[in-house]
């Protein structure tokens, strides 16, 4: 039984003092640990976690993201992934190894405004993120609606072992694909989409509130949560 103290914090606030292990969103000066973001600090016996409540998406290798084509040239597509930089999807990744800019038209595959589900295939602090759509389920999104949330809320929308996303899918009848960058694709009837959207918006606006799961179940009329 671990004891966790939870505390709302803003940047600059002292979270704790002592020899804790910290990961992200915090700053250690001497043995003092300060928050660098708005969020919920969880102080355990020897580690501290800060779950931030806002901020833009920082690409990580192998993340699945939802992007939008905003430009293309002979070498590939520029894709807005709601991050610091647009990502790049190389032509060869889509058209195959023998792609020739003289023969093949990139626009025939993906054109301005098209959305895609892609994996981050390469990223470090010196290069713009590189995308790949080779993989199961990846590629151009042919149908559906998208809704945007803060990337920091994505874990809440997925829930513990996918509990929340399963609840939304079964409660709304809508199929969801979640991009780690905070864009969620919903495929289903107009009614199911609007039901899923209100559940997602609720999680977005009340991610910090204690009775969240029950509230989501209420909105989806799923009855009492079975946790």
């Amino acid at each position: 039984m671990s004891e966790i103290k939870r505390k709302y914090v803003i940047p600059g606030e002292l979270i704790a003092q002592g020899s804790y292990g910290i990961r992200g969103n915090m700053l250690k000066i001497g043995d003092k640990i300060y928050a660098t973001r708005i969020g919920m600090a969880e102080v355990g016996t020897d580690t501290i976690r800060l779950i931030s409540l806002n901020g833009s998406y920082m690409p990580r290798l192998d993340d699945i993201v939802v992007g939008k084509v905003i430009n293309f040239n002979a070498f590939g597509w520029q894709v807005d992934i709601k991050s610091w930089f647009p990502a790049f999807l190389p032509a060869a990744n889509v058209m195959g190894r023998d792609y020739s800019s003289a023969r093949d038209s990139l626009a025939s595959q993906l054109t301005l405004g098209d959305q895609l589900l892609a994996a981050i295939a390469g990223y470090d602090r010196t290069r713009d993120p590189m995308l790949s759509i080779s993989g199961p389920g990846l590629g151009k999104i042919a149908e559906g609606n998208t809704v945007k949330v803060s990337p920091s809320k994505v874990p809440r929308i997925i829930g513990k072992k996918g509990a929340m996303i399963n609840a939304i899918e079964s409660g709304s009848g809508c199929r969801l694909s979640i991009g780690q960058n905070g864009i969620i694709v919903m495929v289903g009837s107009a009614e199911s989409v609007s039901k899923a959207t209100s559940a997602i918006n609720l999680i977005e606006s009340e991610a910090h509130s204690p009775g969240l799961t029950q509230k989501v179940h209420d909105i989806l009329s799923l009855g009492d949560k079975s946790e």
């Binding site: 939008k68 084509v69 905003i70 807005d80 054109t111 301005l112 405004g113 098209d114 959305q115 999104i141 149908e143 559906g144 609606n145 998208t146």
Partner: peptide
């Protein structure tokens, strides 16, 4: 800004 094709089609 470039509008999403799906949104455009939907409109």
């Amino acid at each position: 800004p470039v509008l999403e094709s799906l949104r455009r089609d939907h409109i």
